[in-house]
Design a protein around this nucleic acid. Structure first.
Length: 279
DNA sequence: CTGGGCTCCTGTCAGC
DNA sequence: TGCTGACAGGAGCCCA
């Protein structure tokens, strides 16, 4: 589910409210993708710092306030395919898909994740331990000035996979998942099947701009709510109704009316317009 | 090192 | 209405 716009929308919706809170209790539900990596009770008395994002991961820094239950470090969170976070003053008894509650003096942060591909992992810091390992192979942030057409061209030149697959891999540029990779390629007018190393510099420049503009537009619209995405206030996103190709197989292209095609690349569906995406 | 395929898990929907 | 199979926003891991 959550690609960069959804993760960032989530972060913006609760980061300012949880900052400075003291952890009062922690509740774990069914196992998530990885174990927490520390004693959950050791998180109590820690203070939550400023929540940041790297790719599709969120980082909740913790500061030790009471040496008895010291954890420090922070929590690296990932929403997987079906995860969402809610931050509420008061939470109900956990439902069957609520697998993590961080109860704080300012409210409770709850991870709901039916498929449990998501994760909450403790790490001593962002640059050491499990966080460092999980973030090690991430590509550049799409809104970082270091992400340029030239840089993208250089990275794609060394791959032979389809450009769509290379975008999804996240080790060149982070943030574009299946929806936004499809949408960015449409905006750039590039065939998703094109081999990465066949992208010219002008095409790479267009793709760079398209990745950025697509993610920026999605961010303005609060992400995409296909089924169950909500930000931490429970607000749905609006991007899905602006999608030009994603989930529109058989429907007319908004530009040229050619029916949108659906193919499979690397076990993921790709949607594209065979007329518009040839430049 | 690269690329392809599998896997984790649950819910939903199309088709019979 | 009930069953079965395909598919879903991610990404780590294993093997060729």
């Amino acid at each position: 589910m959550p690609e960069l716009p959804e993760v960032e929308t989530t972060r913006l919706s609760f980061a300012h409210r949880i900052e400075g809170a003291r952890v009062v209790d922690v509740r774990m539900g069914k196992p998530l993708r990885w174990p927490l990596g520390c004693d959950a009770l050791a998180l109590r008395q820690n203070h939550v710092g400023s929540v940041t994002r790297r790719g599709k991961y969120l980082w909740l820094p913790l500061r030790v306030a009471d040496e008895d239950e010291a954890a420090g470090g922070g929590l690296l969170m990932h929403l997987g395919m079906s995860g969402s976070l809610a931050f509420r003053d008061q939470v109900d008894h956990p439902g069957k898909h609520d697998h993590f509650d961080l109860v704080t003096t300012k409210g409770t942060l709850r991870l709901t994740d039916p498929r449990r591909f998501g994760a909450v992992v403790w790490s001593p810091s962002l640059t050491t331990g499990s966080a460092a390992k999980l973030l090690a192979n991430l590509g550049v942030e799409p809104f970082d000035p270091a992400f340029t057409g030239l840089q993208l061209h250089g990275a794609l030149r060394r791959r032979k996979v389809a450009v769509k697959t290379a975008l999804l891999a996240g080790d060149i540029v982070v943030g574009a998942g299946n929806i936004y990779a499809c949408e960015a390629l449409f905006t750039a007018g590039i065939d998703p099947r094109l081999r990465s190393d066949k992208l010219s510099k002008p095409r790479s420049e267009r793709l760079c701009q398209a990745v950025r503009s697509t993610l920026a537009q999605a961010l303005r619209l609060g992400g995409s709510t296909l089924r169950d995405f909500r930000d931490a206030h429970g607000m749905a996103g609006e991007f899905q109704s602006h999608a030009q190709v994603y989930a529109r197989a058989g429907q007319p292209c908004t530009v040229c009316a050619t029916p949108i095609r659906k193919i499979v690349q690397g076990q993921r569906s790709t949607f594209f317009c065979a007329t518009c995406q040839t430049r």
